[in-house]
């Protein structure tokens, strides 16, 4: 059970949070101009890497804010937490 440091509320139990998949995948601004393949790339393709992965998390049972997390999927170590819109920290 992770202890997650919500950037707005502080350290809380994982139970209060919802994971939202890979981060930094921006919704295309002009979807209609994309080919099927390009749109599928946005819609379906996710890295699912072993190692440090950038993820979206939501403090669903708290402030309901979305934020980003850099998590090592091999040992679940949370490397960094940063707000939406912020750049991921250097590795």
């Amino acid at each position: 059970m992770f202890l997650i440091n919500c950037p707005y509320c502080g350290e809380r139990d994982q139970q209060e949070f919802k994971a939202g998949g890979e981060a930094h995948i921006e919704r295309p601004k002009q979807p209609t101009e994309l080919s099927d393949d390009q749109w599928a790339e946005y819609l379906f393709m996710r890295k699912n890497i072993k190692g440090v992965q950038f993820e979206r998390w939501n403090h669903a049972h708290g402030c309901r804010k979305w934020f980003n997390m850099a998590r090592d999927t091999s040992n679940d170590e949370i490397k960094a937490i940063y707000k939406m819109g912020e750049k991921p920290p250097p590795q």
Binding site: N58, A60, W66
Partner: peptide, 12 residues
């Protein structure tokens, strides 16, 4: 949840 997600992350 979905509306909040779009509002906070795609269309802030």
């Amino acid at each position: 949840s979905k509306l909040e997600d779009y509002l906070q992350t795609e269309w802030p």
